[in-house]
Design a protein around this nucleic acid. Structure first.
Lengths: 237, 237
DNA sequence: CGTTAACTTGAATTAAGTCAACTGTCGTGG
DNA sequence: CCACGACAGTTGACTTAATTCAAGTTAACG
């Protein structure tokens, strides 16, 4: 993937610049950038690895590149993927609630992690920054609500169709009416996200394939042949 | 209990004061209060009614008294209750997404409603206010994520137990180790919230009753006899 | 009191889960 | 470069939890 291997220091600066550019814009005082720069903990997580987050503390994690899943585990139970996150996203990981969250890398991933309370302490008096955070958390809330509808009211077919159209919007590349997806997650992950088993995911992929709505190549490439028809299947009518 | 007693209409001023006290504290400039006061649209919704929200616009709604459900409807589909809200809550209703949201009153309810964009425009430069909003929306996000776990990974028994312990925290009154709930919502509502049917809700209440974990009186009163045991049933082990 | 909507209970159905055997993909090392 | 091993995905048969349908019962409100 990465053709060049920047040194730790350069990589760190690039990561922070990307973070600063997307969250703060250029209207926030430089001294805040300095403080946040000191607080930022860069991390490189190998595929399958978990970000080191103090569970008592909570964190904000900026995804520099790669892809991650945010997992919640009930005490001793099966895992549920709460959300997938891609470069540019800022993930809020709450302090110790009953179901501990963890952030796992789907592919090699670079992150910038901030302890939640100190982070909020620093930006406390920066309206521009707070506005961005607020908008992002409202967007996250909105995504979360859509997932509630998916899990509460949709069947397996609708769930997979919703997942695919959602991914198309976030990481798809459209050409000639077809959208190509390079999915970084396994069927297991998709199932853990949609509240289904791998077998059901497989069967539903089969259905979509034989309905001519998608083509698949290898493990990760999916081509959405007819996004409109897929979007129709994503909602119950 | 508050939620079921027919409530005296409280004045617009009292409603706004309650809002201001809980959201802004006393560190926010009075001129903001004046602006927001002009923007605030007070509303009285009768049990079963729906708040008049412009769906293209989005809104923030402060719940003064009563109780509400936030409903999402897929195009033409069944309804899913995204969240219940109680006095003091500030509900964010997003601008026109594919699944339109509406806020319905479970009992007679008084609200204070603000168009989202103007509201955010006014508080844009008020760090204290923005901090409160940010914290509240992060809390809402956290609740939402818990609901995702519930819908994605829990069975009917665990869902109802989670619901009851959650309600106990928000609107229960505990005495002598027992917690009494006066539920403002019907089994239909509980089902629509937990992704289950009314029949399943009824049967699970029956199970909890015969396990000696809850007693019920009439339609709305539920006594949680053993909250610890109920909390155990709320997670899959 | 009587009416209506909310709730309960039972029997039949079904979507998805589980279990098990099999096949394909991909990375590794001979 | 090919063969191998391990893991990811597929497919079929069976099970099960929850839904659906249907017929009661009960609570609340006028």
């Amino acid at each position: 993937m990465d053709h060049c291997r920047p040194t730790q220091a350069i990589s760190r600066k690039h990561l922070f610049d990307a973070f600063w550019g997307s969250i703060a814009g250029d209207k926030v005082a430089d001294e805040i950038a300095v403080k946040l720069g000191k607080l930022a903990q860069p991390g490189r997580i190998r595929r399958g690895g978990t970000a080191a987050i103090d569970p008592d503390d909570g964190a904000f994690v900026y995804i520099g590149n790669g892809a991650t899943k945010l997992i919640a585990r009930g005490p001793g139970g099966r895992e549920q993927i709460v959300a997938f996150h891609f470069p540019g996203d800022l993930v809020s990981i709450p302090a110790g609630t009953k179901n501990s969250s963890s952030l796992c890398a789907l592919v090699d991933t670079e992150i910038l992690s901030f302890p939640a309370d100190k982070f909020l302490g620093i930006v406390r008096s920066e309206p521009v920054f707070l506005n961005t955070l607020l908008h992002r958390s409202l967007t996250a809330l909105e995504r979360c609500r859509e997932k509630i509808i998916l899990l509460g009211r949709k069947n397996a077919q609708e769930r997979l169709a919703s997942f695919l159209t959602g991914m198309a919007e976030r990481i798809g590349s459209t050409q000639a009416g077809e959208c190509t997806l390079e999915l970084p997650m396994s069927h297991k992950d998709i199932g853990d996200s949609l509240g289904l088993t791998i077998e059901t995911i497989s069967r539903q992929f089969g259905n979509l394939r034989s309905a001519g709505l998608v083509r698949t190549t290898g493990r990760s490439r999916v081509v959405l042949c007819d996004i409109a028809a897929l979007a129709d299947r994503a909602v119950d009518l």
